[in-house]
Amino acid sequence: MKEQGHWEWSNETGPRGNLREAVALFDTEENMQAAVDDLESHGFSNAAISRPVPPEEVAAAIHQPVFDTADLEDNAGVPREPVDDNNSRTGITMVAVLTPLYLLLLAGAAFAAGHGLGTWEAIVLIVGLGALGVVGAGFYVTKLVSERRARIQAEKSLGGLLLWVRTGSQEQERRALEILRRHAGRDVHLHGPPLLQ
């Protein structure tokens, strides 16, 4: 992404200062994720792609209830977060499962060694603690998945999944708009300061 000083628009501010962005709403998470993957494969940094935080956090930040996601498209006061793609979610899930499993196995082995347990006693203890770790991790992952589904459903019920893409040139604008439309983006448009003449 180009530095701001080299961007192709004036210093007149738009909704988010001297930033131009492509904006779109999506009806499904699959279409939104496909658009994000396509954007990244065409040179857009993950840091240039953002989403609003959960609706309840948005409402608290802008001090009014959210009735329609479309009302947030050009609102600079809406707090944002990076898009968590499939790879990052998979990584988080793996860490959530393996970390407690590893720690409990390690604790079991240390306890067995420190207390002089026999081989079979040590095995039973370690396997039991490992199973406990897997159950705990499974509960945590299930909770995360449930919360994510509830959030996506809440956003859909408010009108769609909102995505912003920061652009640094007219060519990036053209490409971003084309990609967002290709993946069934709705209300696709640009906002920000005017282009330099």
Rank of each mutant, 00 (worst) to 15 (best):
V145N: 11
G168L: 05
W9M: 00
E12Q: 12
L180S: 02
E147Y: 11
E81N: 07
I126F: 00
D84I: 11
T90V: 09
G116N: 00
V78C: 00
E12S: 10
S146M: 12
N75F: 03
G160S: 04
R51V: 15
R151V: 11
H63L: 07
Q4T: 12
M94K: 13
S41K: 15
P194R: 05
Q197H: 10
L105R: 12
T142L: 14
E21Y: 03
G5V: 12
L25E: 02
F111I: 14
N86T: 15
S88H: 11
R89N: 11
V23D: 06
Q172M: 11
G133I: 00
E73C: 10
G192P: 00
R175K: 13
H42S: 11
Q170P: 08
D85E: 09
L196W: 01
L103N: 02
E155P: 01
V66C: 04
P79L: 07
Q172F: 03
L103C: 02
S169M: 03
A22Y: 02
N31L: 02
N31P: 06
A176I: 08
E3Q: 14
E147N: 12
E21K: 13
A24M: 04
T13I: 13
S45C: 04
V165Y: 06
A48V: 06
P55G: 07
R166N: 15
L144M: 15
A184F: 11
G77N: 11
P194C: 01
F111A: 15
A24H: 07
V23A: 05
E56H: 13
F111T: 13
V66G: 03
F67E: 14
L104A: 04
R181M: 09
E73S: 13
V135T: 09
R16H: 09
L117P: 00
M1A: 15
A47I: 08
A154S: 09
P65T: 04
A70M: 10
L195D: 04
D74Y: 10
E173M: 08
E12H: 07
R151G: 05
L98Y: 03
L117D: 04
A59Q: 03
G138L: 09
R16K: 10
R174E: 14
W9I: 02
S169P: 02
K143L: 12
V127W: 06
T69G: 03
L129W: 01
L144R: 12
L158W: 00
L25Q: 10
S157L: 06
Q64P: 01
L180Q: 05
P54A: 08
G130S: 07
F139D: 11
L190G: 01
E81W: 00
L196P: 00
E30I: 11
V53N: 03
R186I: 06
S157T: 12
A24W: 01
T69A: 13
D187A: 14
E56K: 13
R174C: 09
T99K: 06
A47V: 10
R175Q: 14
P52H: 04
V95L: 09
S41T: 13
G91R: 01
E21T: 10
P82T: 08
V23W: 14
F67K: 14
A34T: 09
G160A: 09
A24K: 01
P79F: 05
E147F: 12
S45G: 05
R51K: 13
L101G: 04
E121A: 15
N75W: 06
V66I: 06
L19T: 12
G114D: 05
A60K: 15
T99Q: 05
S45H: 01
R89C: 07
V58P: 02
T142M: 14
F111Q: 02
